[in-house]
Each structure stands twice: as C-alpha cells, then as structure tokens.
C-alpha cells in the first residue's frame, strides 16, 4: 500500500483529519473547502503534527502517535506541490529545480522532467516573471526532482484557465502512467476528480 493514513488534529473548535488506505495511481481527497484536506496533506508531509494517528507511506512509518515516531519533514521524501507554487524568489528556475536534487538515488532524470513539463525554455528565468501555469509546472518539477516516494498535490488546477488546466492534467497523468509515482491530490472539483482519480476519498 502506498498510503495508510489515519490522522486527526484539533484546530480551534474543529477536528480535522482523514483515514484511508490507498495504493498506486492517483488518490483524490475530495471534499468541500474547510474540511481539512490541506491539513491532512500537511500532516502527511510532516509540516503539522497530528494529535493522534499514524502515517505510513510506502511501507515506512513516518508518524505514529502510539509508538512516538515522528520523522522530520526533510527526511520523509514526500514531494509536496502547494496550492501556491512557493518558488524561491532569489533563485532562478534552474536553481529552484535543483534545490532538492540528490546526486545519489535520483529516480527521474532532469531532462525527462523538464521535457514532459515543457519548462526547458524557462530555466534561466526568475520566478517573478513566470505566469501562474508556468510557475505551477516548475513547482511540480522541483518536487519530482527531489526524488520523492510519493507526490502530494494541493488543488493543482485552481485559478488556471482551461488551456493551463489541461496542461497540468496531462502532467499529472504522465506522473501517474509513465513515472508510476503514487499521487495524493486534493480538489473540490468533481470533474477533475473523475478524470484523474484512480480512487476518490471523501473528506
């Protein structure tokens, strides 16, 4: 199983979290805004600490409240494409892409990644000069090049026009079918979920 997740956390008055088991392909976390989808991704990535539960990814325990296991974010190897691209503004696209690269154990070749994302012509640009769709593709490339064992996508298609959405959807399909990387994706759009999802988890 790629994902075996059961996490809960109190945020103010609300209790957020999710419990599901998922394998290969694209797993879509589907639910209305405010249901705690992003919080669930953050708990899987290790950016926020669940009050209770466990995170097993790719057979490895990354968090377990009972066994007091909490692997540091930087050692989880979970690729995370945030809703906003979060590109480093003081680094060019090339340096952004290279930030998480490791010489040993690179699962995806640099040239393959920039080719399928169509970002080869952007390498010498500064992040502030990119359009929304370009920045998002660079963010996906940056996450893939950090040699992740899985990829989290938070609303990867939000605030893009139809042509840009199509580009990103094709990229996600490529990651699913060619790279065969397990993807966990958050959306509140049923059409997206239906097209991309191997399975849908309602939150």
């Amino acid at each position: 199983m790629s994902f075996d997740i059961d996490v809960t956390k109190r945020l103010g008055d609300a209790q957020v979290g999710a419990a599901f088991v998922a394998g290969e392909g694209v797993t879509v976390l589907f639910g209305p805004s405010g249901a705690g989808k992003t919080s669930t991704l953050n708990m899987i990535a290790g950016l926020i600490r669940p009050d209770w539960g466990h995170v097993h990814v790719d057979g490895e325990t990354l968090f377990d409240s009972g066994e007091r296991i909490d692997v540091a974010v930087e050692r989880r190897r979970i690729g995370y494409v945030f809703q906003e691209p979060r590109l480093f503004p003081h680094k060019r696209v090339r340096a952004n892409l290279a930030y998480g690269r490791h010489d040993a154990g690179e699962s995806f070749a640099f040239d393959d990644v920039i080719a399928f994302l169509g970002i080869g012509h952007l390498l010498d640009r500064w992040p502030r000069t990119l359009s929304g769709g370009e920045a998002r593709r660079v963010a996906i490339g940056r996450a893939l090049l950090a040699n992740p064992r899985t990829l989290l996508l938070d609303e990867p298609l939000s605030s893009l026009d139809d042509a840009r959405r199509e580009e990103i959807m094709r990229a996600i399909e490529h990651i699913r079918d060619v790279f065969r990387l397990p993807v966990l994706m958050v959306t509140h759009d049923m059409a997206e979920a239906e097209r991309l999802a191997t399975r849908v988890v309602r939150v």
Binding site: L47, E74, F82, R86, F88, H90, Y99, A146
Partner: peptide, 25 residues
Amino acid sequence: RRLESAARTLGAGPWRVFGGITLPL
C-alpha cells in the same frame, strides 16, 4: 515561512533552510 516549509519538503534540514532561504531573503 511557507518558503521555508517548501524547502524542508525538498529535503533541506534546518541549517540548509537558514543558509539557503532565510538568510539570503
């Protein structure tokens, strides 16, 4: 701070985040 958490998901430990992201910014 969101840039710092992005750097950590890319495998950078606290010192690398400080030296490569926080300090230059």
